[in-house]
Amino acid sequence: MENVIEVKSLAKIFGNQTALEDVNFHVKKGETFGFLGPSGSGKTTTIKILTGQLAQTSGDAKVFQTPTSSINKPAYRKRIGVITDNSGLYSRLSIYDNLKLYCDLYDVPTKRIQEVLQMVNLTDEPKKPISKLSKGMLQRVTLARAFLHEPDLLFLDEPTSALDPANSKHIHDGLRRLNEKGTTIFLTTHDMTEAESLCNRVAFLNRGKIQLLDEPKALRRQFSDASVTLELKDGREIIVTGDAKGADAIHQYMATGQVVSIHSNEPTLGDIFVEVTGRELV
């Protein structure tokens, strides 16, 4: 399968501060790839380099087999969508007028506006000026704008950081549909539930370095100790290990009818992150 993003030995140094160090990864066509890391780990810096907004200090960054230093051409821009943490909107103009501008710039018919507003659950007041919107609504307009031209490759920098769970879920559904239609997605987040539910593969970024990269399922399997938690009728919760001894214990409790529920203790991506990096994912 063709690689849409290829990054080799990428480094970025700001003054005397290293923001990225020896970063290597690739994103395959059709994938949803998650970049997880705490604040300051270099997520936005990576997106800026990949979208040609920032030059790397060393290493290779290619998008569509093209060095990102030369993707600043309309032909590439039409295939890419980007949302960063400071994507601005025109505050005096309405939601509709903001999107209309981008329809014209991307050569998309204006009837698409209604479709993207549905994707972000914002169909009520398209004529409302941007200055009157809440933070979550702003984020949804920005997302709608990035969906307009159904890009081949979509970069999303913390796409749901300002959204409530219901709207996050709505956006996630929309992202899945875009992905099914062929959009490759590169997203950064510190929300591990988001990463687990959307991403085919995730990379853990810590202090500018990738510390782990795999499918969420594989990671959980790798870091699972196979123990399970039993909830008993007398209210106790006990953890039994995933071996013969544990199996005996479960047998005992079950045979005597004491078990209310059994839960496997697979770690979440957040747990794994803490285990690998020693840092919280916030």
Binding site: T51, Q53, N72, P74, R77, K78, I80, V82, T84, N86, S87, G88, L89, Y90, S91, Y102, L105, Y106, D107, R145
Partner: peptide
Amino acid sequence: EKNTLRGLMLSPAT
């Protein structure tokens, strides 16, 4: 000032 130039530059507009 409003970070809108960035969006234009990332669009096909030159």
